[in-house]
Design a protein around this nucleic acid. Structure first.
Lengths: 138, 138
DNA sequence: GACGTTACGCACCGATCGGTGCGTAACACG
DNA sequence: CGTGTTACGCACCGATCGGTGCGTAACGTC
């Protein structure tokens, strides 16, 4: 969402209470962006290493994620003139601050309340299933 | 993303490093969900109040957001048998903990580093424009 | 000289996201 | 009895998301 900001977003920002926080939450909008950040939290990695470490990301989408993170100034890209090509991605100071602050807080919250969250999700999933069964039974 | 979890997600969870954190970041995946949460941080609100306070949300999408937040156990819904109908949405303990912890941290980060983020975004946007101008000029 | 590796790019695709517009049940008011 | 309000539901739509598959430039290896 961020990174493909259009001009009309300026208008939209008038309406939402705190557009700064909006810009921040948008950093989590894409599935793999936060995952890449935590993968880079332990140091710089090559593109292939990232892909393997994360697992389940398609090549194209990883590229897009890296492009967004670069555009947002959260990571750095260093290409070495070798063969086969070697490209290293690293957290910038900004990216590091995001990982150390909000994402760490999110991790703590997930550890403490993750079970509650999953329980609630399961419960509502069961309710949906129950409702489905009932409607099919009648 | 969460709330419409399919069965194959169980397979996917094997790959991603920390699926707890994934479940947490997914809470920010939908544009308006976090906004609704901060709107409810100051106390319970009616659906219409939410819509007006946020501004720019379509009626349908607000409903979907509320459904997800309910399914995730982050908010409560209390319907009063009146006319016109009156429905109050409130943060649950879980929702409150999410707002007080991670989202507050995100707010702090946005206040401190929001400008850096916007600067980086603007810079990359200008580069894209420049590249476009160059290609059009040639 | 064929083959593998790396880091991409590009075309195509189904699924999902968010928005618009319209309908509705229940009641209150004039 | 027509009008307004509230909290939805539903159909339709363009845009975007993430995935798959294929191509490629540059080099080392056998």
């Amino acid at each position: 969402m961020v990174g493909e900001r259009s001009d009309r977003d300026v208008d939209r920002d008038k309406f939402v209470a705190d557009c700064r926080v909006r810009a921040a939450t948008d950093l989590f909008a894409h599935t793999w962006d936060p995952v890449v950040l935590v993968a880079l939290a332990s140091g710089s990695r090559r593109r292939r290493e990232l892909r393997d470490a994360i697992g389940g990301v398609s090549d194209k989408v990883l590229t897009q994620a890296l492009h967004r993170l670069l555009a947002n100034g959260l990571i750095d890209r260093r290409a070495h003139a070798e063969a086969p090509p070697r490209v290293e991605y690293t957290l910038t100071g900004l990216g590091q601050s995001l990982v150390d602050g909000p994402m760490k807080a999110l991790g703590h919250w997930a550890n403490e309340h993750g079970d509650e969250l999953l329980d609630a999700q399961e419960r509502s999933a069961r309710n949906v299933i129950d409702a489905r069964v009932i409607t099919m039974a009648t």
